[in-house]
């Protein structure tokens, strides 16, 4: 008996549950984008376009919601960014007819890198993500639009993001779609093929891929996360579905360790009524 065949039926069943109706997703998410931006008294959005599938899907949804003339796509390459990233981002800009801008971040990043010669790739990646956030928030004022988030549910749960970098945004339209679901939406929206097939990468250094850095595939981790989060399985119950018990534990440890990235910083309570504790209004209140 081979190691994996007994669980093929389970895997197929979970994969089926991760299948989405892209028309409903598009309807709800374009409505959300329109609603959030109009409630803020605006009609435009600013979006960092990396050449990857997440920001491409966000760009397609934004263009459908607001009209391409109201979406500013900003490409922000560093000198080591791959040429494919720029050309894939350009393919999206051309396909949708978005307003666009290219702002090199090399000249901003390198002076800081030079002050710390021992700086790791991780630190450099975080700095680049925060510089891109700075550029987008500046363009937010110049263009008069909200900064569109491009984070998916997998990376939000795993904390595979830079706090106040790519997570520093005004709204998150695709934050409840796992990576494997996002791929289905990308195909339905007609995102260019080259973006759909290439391995996901933060492109922070040459040859980096998400799955290489994370140490597992999106196909596997999405199934584990779906069972743990959406279906409320226990860790043991997930392992019983045929997933390696250590892998399941490691994923959950990662979700827990990165929860701080998904919440606002705690405020120490002193008064009778404190922001974040008992001053309770929706963000949409204003």
């Amino acid at each position: 008996m081979s190691a994996h065949t007994p669980f093929e039926a389970e895997r197929a069943r979970i994969a089926h549950k991760l299948t989405i109706n892209p028309d409903i997703a598009t309807k709800v998410l374009t409505g959300f984008i329109k609603d959030e931006i109009h409630k803020a008294g605006m009609k435009r959005a600013v979006l960092g376009l990396s050449g990857g599938i997440d920001s491409a899907v966000s760009a397609y949804l934004s263009a459908l919601a607001l009209g391409p003339e109201n979406v500013l796509a900003v490409r922000m390459p560093y000198k080591s960014s791959s040429a494919d990233s720029l050309s894939d981002a350009d393919a999206v800009i051309q396909a949708l007819g978005l307003q666009h801008l290219t702002v090199e971040i090399t000249g901003m990043a390198d002076p800081l890198f030079a002050q710390f010669p021992e700086m790791s790739n991780g630190r450099k990646g975080n700095i680049m993500a925060r510089l891109r956030m700075t550029v987008l928030y500046d363009q937010s004022v110049a263009f008069g639009g909200l900064v569109m988030g491009t984070s998916n549910k997998t990376e939000l749960l795993l904390g595979y993001s830079t706090v106040y970098g790519d997570s520093g945004v005004a709204l998150q339209p695709i934050g409840d779609l796992y990576k494997t679901q996002l791929r289905q939406l990308a195909a339905a929206l007609g995102v260019p093929q080259s973006l759909q097939v290439k391995p996901p990468s933060a492109d922070l250094w040459e040859g980096q891929t998400d799955e290489g850095e994370l140490g597992f595939t999106y196909a596997d981790v999405d199934q584990v996360l779906y069972l743990l989060v959406d279906e409320r399985y226990t860790l043991d119950e997930v392992a019983e579905e045929g997933f390696d018990a250590k892998f399941v534990r490691d994923v959950w440890r990662r979700v827990k360790a990165n929860h701080y990235k998904r919440t606002m910083p705690n405020i120490a309570k002193l008064s009778q009524r404190t922001i974040g504790h008992d001053f309770l209004f929706l963000r949409d209140w204003a």
Partner: peptide
């Protein structure tokens, strides 16, 4: 509220 997106034609 809408919840439970899957492959079918409604939540």
């Amino acid at each position: 509220p809408s919840r439970g997106l899957d492959a079918s034609d409604k939540f």
